[in-house]
Design a protein around this nucleic acid. Structure first.
Lengths: 381, 381
DNA sequence: CTGAAAGCGCTTACAG
DNA sequence: CTGAAAGCGCTTACAG
């Protein structure tokens, strides 16, 4: 073994590998780093170099590589932290875990690392985040849930996930949003199929992409179906679900069903209905939106429109890496799919008790099929 | 402005700043980078340099800085991904979000970045993770939930959070675990106070630190209180909670209370009790462990021992940064606190209806006080 | 208090 | 197919 093997840091360097293999640093770089000019190298040399690298347990230094290539194979992922109050220590949006899994799936497949940037408030207000973006520490930014302000000024490719609609498509940035409008329509069709005509809506915060799309779908559906729109507003959390359903149930003509623009508010609705002696789904059908894990822990289990954040985030990450690797690629605007998860809070299974435990419908056709099959089974049984 | 301002990457470099300020690169480095020898610099020079940096919107290059300092101010955070089956797309342990928040709190305060490494299975099996550890891309590793195998061989400081007990304290690594034993004892004392003597336990997986500590606490408490220990086992998820409570309720002498070693299993217990017509808390008191967000969405709201993962993870991150900044510092073994969250599934509030909505007890003294005050209020009312 | 110079460990035109 | 050399943009002893 060459004497210089263990350099100051205790780890082998590319020079050590070159000496042991009897070749130049350039050659080692071409082989190990899969770098420029690596196409034509004699098999013998390749062999020798890998053998030397193995012997020395060589690992290329990330900083030196980044400095030489002007690339880090790392992206920044900006996600919101918890909201104020007693939630401050948790992610406010439980779908973030799902998004992170999707991002990890995409990045780990393509050999990228992820720097996690959790932000309370405006990400631009955090000098440390700006430093990461401007220091060359990352090759691109995945911008999750945050409003899009100024992102297009950044000297890096940016792709946004579930960003506020108003700003989408302004600059040269990609956007992947969940498709809440058609998803919500599916939910409303489900209620219509079950015979409801007095359906209210509890809307989430107006500055949120998902919430506004859900409300828009409700308004559109009412107009098309000839329903009278009845909307109460909430902030996305349990308490406002409780107060909103309270107001709805106190009306002279209380709704027979409610489409709640968020699963956490729907949990509040279930609790308040229970404490008022209103039976769900018998007296009131409740359908949520989000697709949080805990819908299956609610009583009754909550039927909901699930946003496929895993897919959305995975696709967004892939788009970002495409932009990084090919600067001529066009940023795109895409939508991730949604699906209706049919559980117990709308009475579908009461009508069709033979139906399997949990079923999903991803589009009007599947919903159609679902209701047809259930009806057939009902007649047979 | 100097002609070289916009170097190839379009961004100002340290050289540009030096020229504009009329000083040497060394000086700029000492001032901007807060580097060696920065103590004695004339105020005028400092002023000039910052002004030039501001004018050029200068941001030091991260890779170059890392290469020069042999430090990245970045840590790797290793967390488990979802388990197999339909949970594969989510973090299996919802406490991970809480841990990430705690880590972010500590690292962002001290100017560190976080590289997120989500792993399915053994982190050592992922060559990309090993590469991050060995390439100098990070200064240390925060090892969350994973078994500790081989971590001490890594050439970096490592701190583990809620790692399996067996391996803890072997090498030169720090460990911060949640203090499940005393926490669980608190839960059992709560049940004892409420008059229960036939208390069963549903244990989580034996290869999990939290689960084994909870079971140990149960065994110890039974021995001390003279209770007959009755243990059923589960895997931590809802289904096994359902089957375990089924077996317990089918006994000739069914328990009047059950300490469930995990909130998700406890949800299964609540569901199964309901479907069997067993009223909670009247016929059966149920107490969970973990402190998941969704305990407040359950019916009845689940009383539980919450593990303070935010604190645990924050402390662990701080310990790791201490080790990085002072290689002579000793890795330590610490515990993060737990607290009993008293909600509705044990009947405490049925006995003492005047009591506030949600209360916590962090230690035996507080639990004592809780019960005493509740009793007094009860007598007065 | 400040500067010139070597060094960190790679990558990549440019020759050959 | 391979090597010598310049360059990436910082940091830091070493002089002065």
């Amino acid at each position: 073994m060459p004497e210089s093997e263990a350099s100051r840091s205790g780890r082998a360097t590319m020079d050590d590998v070159a000496k042991l293999a009897g070749v130049s640093k350039s050659t080692v770089s071409r082989i190990i780093g899969r770098n420029v000019g690596a196409i034509q190298i004699s098999p013998r040399t390749v062999e020798k170099v890998w053998e030397a690298a193995r012997q020395l347990d060589y690992q290329p230094n990330a900083a030196a590589r980044a400095l030489g290539r002007q690339r880090t194979d790392t992206i920044a992922v900006v996600v919101p932290s918890g909201s104020p109050g007693h939630h401050e220590r948790r992610f406010s949006n439980l779908k973030i875990s799902e998004a992170l899994s999707g991002i990890d799936r995409a990045t780990s497949t393509r050999g990228y690392n992820v720097i996690l940037q959790i932000t309370a408030g405006d990400p631009f207000d955090d000098p440390r985040h700006r430093q990461v973006w401007a220091s060359g520490a990352v090759d691109g930014i995945l911008w999750c849930w945050e409003p899009l302000r100024d992102v297009e000024q950044l000297p890096l490719p940016v792709v946004a996930v579930n960003a506020v609609a108003a700003s989408a498509g302004r600059g040269e940035i990609g956007v992947v949003n969940t498709d809440d409008h058609p998803g919500s329509t599916l939910a409303l069709q489900h209620l219509a199929r079950l015979g409801h005509t007095r359906v209210a809506h509890i809307a989430g915060p107006a500055d949120n992409w998902n919430a506004t799309e859900r409300r828009r779908a409700y308004d559109d559906f009412c107009a098309a179906a000839g329903w009278e729109p009845v909307v109460e507003s909430g902030d996305g959390f349990e308490d406002t679900g409780i107060s909103a359903i309270g107001r709805l149930l106190s009306r002279d003509d209380p709704p027979t069903a409610v489409f709640v623009g968020g699963d956490r508010m729907a949990i509040g609705v279930l609790a308040e209905a229970r404490s008022r002696g209103v039976r769900v789904p018998d007296d009131l059908a409740v359908i949520g939106a989000d697709g949080m894990d805990f819908i299956r822990f609610a009583t009754p289990r909550l039927t909901t429109v699930a946003m496929m954040m895993y897919e959305a985030a995975r696709d967004a990450a892939n788009m970002l890496m495409d932009l990084i690797e090919d600067r001529t690629a066009e940023p795109q605007q895409r939508f991730a799919s949604t699906q209706l998860i049919v559980l117990d809070s709308c009475g579908f299974r009461r009508t069709y008790p033979e139906h399997p435990e949990e079923t999903v419908a991803r589009n009007p056709e599947e919903l159609d099929l679902l209701h047809k099959r259930a009806a057939e089974a009902h007649e047979r049984g």
